[in-house]
Amino acid sequence: MIDALGRRGNLPAETSTFMGRDEDLAEVGRLLQEESLVTLTGVAGVGKTRLALKAAGELSGGAWLAELSGERNGALLAHTIGAAIGLPEQAARPQGDVLAEHLADRRMLLILDTCEHLLSPCRELVGQILRAAPGVRVLATSRQPLGLPGERVHTVRPLPVTAEDCDAVRLFRDRARAVCPGFEPSDAVVRLCRRLDGVPLALELAAGRLRALTAGELLDHMDDRFSLLAGRGRTGRHRTLRTAVGWSHELCTPEERLLWARLSVFAGTFDAAAAADVCADERLRGVPGLLSRLADKSVLIRHGQRFRMLGMMRDYGREWLRAIDEERAVVRRHREHSLALRRGMRHPGRRVCGDPARRPESSRPHPGPGH
């Protein structure tokens, strides 16, 4: 597709080095050759958008980006996408029909970036486009799948942290040299990258703090990572860690938020039985199903039949646990559960809080304390 300006796409120019992700790039490229709809999912700040743009840039043909994070009205979704590809408005007809008709005989890649808050309208519009336009491929980024038949989902994982030459440390070094020329990693940097779970956004924000702090000092302040990693806008999107994680929290239901808060007492992996023992009560039932929903929304990471929560997600949940005055009770239940396991027995789920009628603060619609 070529627009009125003669462009075969509107992808932004790269402003920083793309690090690692060779296997992800190869897999996304393969999926795009085979499937009409590919969705990149993953936790906040993991680099879904950057991977999508890099994968699209390596493909031949036109690639068009529609950035959806600023759009809150699903009824305007087709207008937002149409504007991104240079399609004029036609007030006399539904814009979704105009868009699908315009793309019907095109061959192009359409990137829909940040779909999670518009899942239902995205699902409906993408389905309409793909039915009308067999030559169009859609690459979506979202914290959960769109849920369309034939959708292929690729989960973007944090960068591995293994040694001084791993991708996470190389990314940190590259960004650190922008503020400290000649910077070389140390063992403290490896430990810092590990504490940050290899999440690219967190690594970039931490590297920017080297203007004022050493890597060791950053490590010492990790208990307050949200205040520490409050970066200033390079792009305006998710430039603080709290904003990125808070966006996921805002998209959760009250029950999912409450379980997220209670799960923050688990430092390692856990299974559904452990989560139910520690977290379930008369105000929070159906824990196994809620676990799956939190994993689908990229709050939890699956490991077979077990789950884990990245440090930044756990810290955010712990803030909420304190805010709703449940920390002491849930920590006690977690301790009792751990002791029971050591003794070869498991306590059935019991009440977490003394007043089942009290409405938990985690059911409020805003994203979290200090947000």
Rank of each mutant, 00 (worst) to 15 (best):
F266E: 02
W320N: 02
A267F: 03
R306A: 14
R285M: 12
Y316S: 12
A267M: 01
L284S: 02
L290G: 00
A275Y: 01
M309H: 00
L310P: 04
V299W: 09
R322A: 13
A295L: 07
A329K: 05
R302C: 11
A267L: 08
H334S: 08
Q305D: 15
L310Y: 09
A273E: 13
E319N: 06
D271M: 11
L294W: 03
T269Q: 12
G304S: 10
R314E: 05
D325M: 08
L310M: 10
D277F: 01
L300S: 01
L300W: 00
D271N: 14
D296A: 13
V330S: 02
R306M: 11
T269G: 12
G304D: 09
R285F: 05
R308N: 07
F307G: 06
A280S: 13
A280K: 02
K297Y: 00
L321G: 02
D277C: 14
E327S: 13
D277T: 15
G311W: 07
I301Y: 08
A280L: 06
M313F: 13
R328L: 14
R306S: 15
F270W: 00
R285K: 11
L284P: 00
R293A: 14
R332L: 15
T269C: 11
S292M: 11
R333K: 15
G311H: 14
S292Q: 14
L300C: 02
A276W: 00
T269H: 12
T269K: 12
R283T: 07
M313A: 11
R333I: 09
D277Y: 03
A272F: 03
S292C: 11
D296P: 08
S292N: 14
A274C: 10
R333E: 06
I301E: 13
R283W: 00
A275C: 05
R285Y: 05
E327P: 04
C279H: 03
R318N: 09
V330N: 00
A329G: 03
A276M: 09
R314W: 03
A276Q: 14
L321E: 00
D325K: 10
L290Y: 01
E282F: 07
H334M: 11
R322N: 06
Q305G: 14
F270N: 03
L291I: 01
R333N: 09
H303E: 14
